[in-house]
């Protein structure tokens, strides 16, 4: 289980998270939503040590990890993978080399073994034909699938998706949604998804947390979000320009 406990994070004078607390249950598809700049991506980066909270604790499987150094973070990153917003494939490597890198670095596999395993992982996301292509020659949707293959290559318990459907066409976006849903249903992977995509949110989320002005505004199921009479929540989930929500 994952627990954020009273997370506070500032960047210089700008206070982004002002005491955020919630739990994520095992095997669920958990969405973090909120306006741009509210600190959604910042929050999930705390889970894998890419950022550290000013105060507060981050718990994964009963272990408080927010004060871990880089070396102690490696096992955490093995079980908690991340798909970045812009895929962030390494430009200088082919797709298969990108997917093989965590296998070599985390598991210490040889180059040949890691490439063979990576090729299988690419096949699983229908990208086997592009194994030897460089990321620059791929479209956004294809890059995203390679990035997902790279994240899943270590069979993580938790996968963090940072706006996985942003910049994708609707068909590619729904395929990514299906993949996230299948991960949870078939392998029990817990997915934490940062997203603005209302179709995704209400299509595949088990639970949702909405961040607003540095705090948790609402935590609940999609049905509870729809039934909530909070004007800020309603404005956000209906995508209205007018309303009480402050930017």
């Amino acid at each position: 289980m994952i627990r954020f406990a009273d997370i506070v994070k500032s960047f210089g004078p700008k206070s982004v998270l002002k005491g955020v607390s919630f739990d994520v249950r095992r095997g669920e598809v958990f969405f973090i939503i909120g306006a741009s700049g509210v600190g959604k991506s910042v929050l999930i980066k705390h889970l894998v040590g890419l950022m550290a909270p000013d105060t507060g604790d981050v718990w994964i499987d009963g272990e408080e990890i927010s004060r871990f150094d880089e070396a102690r973070m490696f096992p955490v990153r093995m079980k908690c993978a991340m798909v970045f917003q812009h895929s962030t494939l390494f430009d200088s490597m082919t797709c298969v080399e990108n997917v093989a890198l965590p296998l070599r670095k985390h598991r210490g596999l040889s180059l040949g073994d890691s490439l063979a395993e990576a090729a299988k992982r690419l096949d699983a996301v229908q990208m086997g034909a592009f194994a030897d292509s460089y990321p620059s020659s791929l479209g956004d949707g294809m890059k995203k699938r390679v990035a997902i293959a790279r994240a899943l290559t270590l069979d993580p318990k938790y996968v963090l998706f940072d706006e996985p459907t942003t910049s994708l066409d609707p068909v590619s976006a729904r395929r990514v949604d299906d993949l996230i849903r299948r991960l949870s249903g078939e392998t029990g992977v817990t997915s934490i998804v940062v997203s603005h995509d209302l179709v995704s949110i209400f299509g595949i989320a088990d639970r949702i947390v909405m961040l607003y002005r540095g705090h948790v505004r609402l935590l609940g199921t999609p049905a509870e979000f729809k039934a909530c009479d909070d004007g800020v929540v309603q404005q956000f989930i209906h995508g209205r320009a007018e309303g009480p929500m402050e930017l």
Partner: peptide, 14 residues
């Protein structure tokens, strides 16, 4: 700035 360094850290590559 494109988060590739963060992605490297996620792959256990300092």
């Amino acid at each position: 700035v494109t988060e590739q360094v963060d992605a490297l850290r996620m792959c256990a590559a300092d």
